[in-house]
Amino acid sequence: MVRDYQDHMSQELADLLRERGINPTVQRVEIARLLVYRRTHLTAEDVFRLVNHDGAHVSKATVYNTLGVFAQKGLIREVVIDPTRVVYDSNTVPHHHFYNTETGELFDIEGQTMSVAGLPPLPQGTEVEGVEVIVRLRSSADRVA
């Protein structure tokens, strides 16, 4: 019974990947399984660790390349926290984030609860594709009086 469910879920994921123009290899389906069915924020290292947790053998290069393809095809979003930290977000609807600089946790801010006004003039021949805001937080107890 569990095996039938897993096979069905794998087939659904393979179909989803095909719909996005992604070839559904076994490794890509396993990586998609971590990201698609729940809202989560994972680094590439998190995905590498989790996908290999049960004895699978997915290389680090495959994980990084797959996450890049998934982001390019709109299956997930890349959230660049800083130049050394990228998080992959399974929530692809427009929204923003709170980022706790002390704990490294990233939390969604629903898109409709926040607006951005006063964008500067755009360079000629361009248009706004989207705006993403990261609100950086820290404990107020750490502030020096």
Rank of each mutant, 00 (worst) to 15 (best):
E110A: 07
T103E: 06
G125T: 06
T66F: 09
F70C: 00
T113S: 11
P94Q: 14
S139Q: 08
S140M: 11
Y99Q: 03
L16Y: 15
S90N: 03
N100W: 03
E102L: 07
R143S: 10
S139H: 06
Q27Y: 11
V58M: 11
L75E: 06
V79Q: 04
Y88K: 05
H57P: 00
V63L: 00
V80R: 10
V131C: 03
D142E: 10
G125A: 11
V26T: 06
I81M: 01
V36I: 06
M9E: 15
R49M: 13
T43K: 06
V69N: 00
P123Y: 02
Q27C: 10
G125F: 08
R38H: 06
T84K: 10
Q72T: 01
G118R: 04
V80N: 01
R39A: 08
M1G: 15
N91G: 09
R143D: 13
R3H: 15
Y5R: 14
R18W: 04
V144H: 10
D15Q: 14
R18Y: 05
V133T: 07
G130I: 02
N65K: 14
L35E: 05
S139R: 09
P24C: 13
V36A: 01
Q11G: 14
F98E: 05
L35K: 04
L35H: 07
Q27T: 12
Y64P: 00
D108Q: 07
G55R: 09
V36T: 01
V79L: 08
Y99L: 08
T62H: 05
S10D: 15
R39V: 08
L137R: 12
H41V: 02
I31E: 04
L42E: 06
Q11D: 15
T103L: 09
V26M: 00
Y88Q: 03
R20E: 10
R138S: 13
T25Q: 07
L17K: 14
Y5C: 10
H96L: 11
E78A: 11
I22F: 09
D54K: 14
D108F: 01
I22R: 10
N52C: 13
E105G: 10
L50D: 15
E105H: 14
D108V: 10
G68E: 02
R49I: 13
R28N: 12
G111L: 08
T66K: 08
R143F: 14
E78N: 04
L17D: 07
S59Y: 02
L106H: 06
R39Q: 09
A145E: 15
R49F: 12
Q6E: 14
T113Y: 08
V128T: 13
V86L: 07
A44V: 12
P121N: 04
D54T: 12
H96C: 08
I31Q: 05
T62F: 02
E12I: 12
S59E: 07
L50V: 08
V58A: 11
E78D: 05
E102K: 06
S140K: 13
V47N: 08
P94N: 13
T126H: 04
V87P: 01
N100Q: 06
E12L: 15
D142A: 09
